[in-house]
């Protein structure tokens, strides 16, 4: 047995898992009857359908696919750096404030580029901090903590 179409195989697996999870959790909710549907009815049906669809896709990629196609090629560096810069920003905004978290977001996400330069990244961060302060904090009056919470001065 050889998987001829890995992308279809994996998407089938993904749909199957999502569908199965939906069925599993929806089974806990009240099903009701077809005239009076409970909260579990529609998600259960959708989950079952999705799982069946995923199963079909999975089987098809193994047994009926013609020719072979390349699998997905992953580049983990941009993925990990960009996502973690966003998560970091979310985690640090409240405790450390806009100035620190912006610098971190810009520098960490800039690392993902193949043309990364330290000096440029920090310069970029400095420019963006000014832009953000002027546009979002002063002009649009967004309620964002600017300074770290331990340094905050109550206005």
């Amino acid at each position: 047995m050889r998987i001829r179409h890995p992308k279809d195989f994996l998407s089938g697996l993904m749909f199957l898992l999502f569908g199965a999870a939906a069925v599993f959790f929806a089974a806990d909710y009240d099903m009701g009857s077809s005239a009076r549907m409970g909260p579990g009815y529609f998600p259960f049906a959708l989950g079952a359908f999705l799982a069946a669809l995923g199963g079909t896709l999975l089987l098809r990629s193994v047994f009926w696919a013609q020719g072979s196609r390349p699998g997905p090629v992953l580049h983990l560096k941009p993925l990990v750096l960009v996502l973690s810069s966003v998560v970091l920003f979310g985690l640090l905004l409240r405790p450390l404030g806009l100035l620190v978290s912006t610098t971190l977001l810009v520098v960490v996400s800039s690392l993902a580029s193949h043309e990364f330069r330290w000096k440029e990244a920090f310069l970029n961060a400095a420019v963006l901090i000014v832009v953000v302060l002027v546009v979002f904090v002063y002009l649009l009056d967004f309620q964002v903590p600017v300074w770290p919470s331990f340094m905050a001065v109550r206005a």
Binding site: V86, G90, L105, S109, S113, E120, N124, L128, F142, V144
Partner: peptide, 19 residues
């Protein structure tokens, strides 16, 4: 260059989301 733009876009996304 894109390397200077995308951190800015990410930043605006994050601030927008928070707001």
């Amino acid at each position: 260059p894109f390397r200077r733009l995308y951190p800015a876009i990410l930043l605006f996304c994050c601030i927008g989301l928070y707001s």
